[in-house]
Design a protein around this nucleic acid. Structure first.
Length: 130
RNA sequence: AAAGUAGGUCACCUUAUCGCCGUGUAUCGAAUCUUAUUCGGUUCAAGGAGGAAAGUCCGGACACCAUAGAGUAUCAUAGCGGAUAACAUCCGUCCAACGUGAGUUGAGGACAAGUGCAACAGAAAGCAAGUACAGUUCGGCUGUAGUGAAACCAGGUAAACUCUAUGAGGUGCAAUGCUAUGUAUAUUGAAGUUUGAGAAUUACUCGUUCGAUUUCAAAGGGUAAGCAGCUAAAAUUAUAAAGUAAUUUAUAAUUUAGAUAAAUGAUAAGGACUCUGAUUAUUUGGAGUACAGAAUCCGGCUUAUGACCUACUUUUUUA
C-alpha cells in the first residue's frame, strides 16, 4: 500500500502527452476549464495505454519571449500537476488527455500556482461529474 | 585615488525530502525454437546545459543528388610572411589614420588597358568653346596672365564599372538507411510501336541523361510511428620539446548530456556575496545574486551579460 501512495506523485514518460495526432485533436475538439492564470484543455479518449490521464504543458511564445522563462513555467506547471493529480486519479473513471496552458504574462511563484492547480482540478471534477 | 587600455578566471554553494532523463549492475515477470535474446517493473550506483547553449554571419566534418563536364555569369577574399581540416578566423610584421599615452582601427592588389565621376572657383576639368595682353611665318599659330590640388596632357578616384590573382557544384540530420502497417496512382525494369511535344541537371549556353503510348512484372504516396544516424572526438587535462607567436610534436592520465510537445526540476533550512534601513562598533531587518536553455558535431565571428584578478597608461596628491 505504501508503494501505491508514493507512485501517485510520479510523472514519467508514460503519463506525458506525446502523440502529435492526439494533441492536434485536443486543440480542435477539446473542452476547457480555467482558473486564472491557468487553463485546462481536456478530451475523453477511448484508446490509450495503461494510464488514466496523459498530460502536457504549454506556454505561448508571445507571452514569454525567452526559452528559459518558458521552461521555468512549464516546470512549475508540471510540478504542480504532479503533486495534485491524486485529486483526479482517485475519483475519475474515464480516460482523458490534458493540456495545461498558462495565460498570465508574469511569472508567479510555486505556492501560488499549486493553489490554482488544486482549484482547477476540483472545478474540472465538478464539471465532468454533472 | 580617479579616469582609461589590454588580457585572464569563475559562473553562488551545502544538506534533506519529493520528482525527471538516459546508462550500468542485481533481481522479478512475460514472450520466443535451445541454459540466449527482446520487452516491462523494482533496487542500488555513478552521471545529466553554456560562455555565450543565442544570432544562424563565415569555415569545415558527415550524408545524399551522377554528369558534379566545358564556357559565361555571379559571389567571396586582397600589403608581406606564417598557423590551420578550413575560413571572411588566428599570429607576427610593415605602412596609413586616430589617441597626450597604454593602444585601437584599416573597406591597405592595379587608374601607362578601356569607360565613368569630381564640391567651390573658373570661359573650359572633353568633344565643345574661349577673356586680356604680347609676339607672329597673319593660321582660333605661339607665349604670358587670371581660377584651381590639377588646364589640353597629365594627375585624383577602384566601400565606380573594370582588370589581375586565388577560391566556390547543389541540397541539408525534417540529410540518409532499416523496420512496421498497408492502398489510389505518379515511379522503376523488360518487350513492342513511335523519332519527337517536353522534362531533369546550377542562373544562362553547350553538352549529358530521360522521353510519347501499350502489355507484363516489381516496387511504392502517405502515416511527421519505431530504431539507427547520435555522440570517443580536428576531445579534455598535465608535463616536456620546437617556435617571437598563432600552433605543432611526444608522453601520461581521464571519459565528459543525448532529450524529441523536447529531461537536467520543485520545496525547506543554513551559509557566501552585493545593495540598503536601523543601531552602533557588532549585531539585526529588508531586497537581490547577471545574460540566458543543448537538439548532427566541431573551429571561429557577432551580439547579451554579473563578479573578481593581473599588467600597463595618463592626471592629481603625499613623501
Amino acid at each position: 500500500m505504501a508503494t501505491f501512495v508514493s507512485m501517485q506523485f510520479t510523472f514519467n514518460k508514460k503519463e506525458k502527452l506525446k502523440s502529435k495526432k492526439l494533441i492536434e485533436r485536443l486543440f480542435t475538439e477539446g473542452k476547457s476549464v480555467s482558473v486564472y492564470p491557468l487553463k485546462l484543455l481536456y478530451l475523453k479518449v477511448e484508446h490509450s495505454n495503461d494510464c488514466a490521464i496523459q498530460a502536457g504543458v504549454s506556454v505561448s511564445k508571445r507571452k514569454f519571449k525567452n526559452a528559459v522563462d518558458r521552461n521555468r513555467i512549464k516546470r512549475l506547471l508540471r510540478e504542480a500537476f504532479r503533486n495534485q493529480k491524486h485529486i483526479i486519479s482517485e475519483r475519475c473513471s474515464y480516460k482523458y488527455i490534458f493540456m495545461f496552458l498558462y495565460l498570465d504574462e508574469n511569472e508567479k511563484n510555486y505556492v501560488f500556482i499549486e493553489e490554482k492547480m488544486t482549484n482547477l482540478l476540483q472545478k474540472f471534477l465538478k464539471k465532468t461529474e454533472k
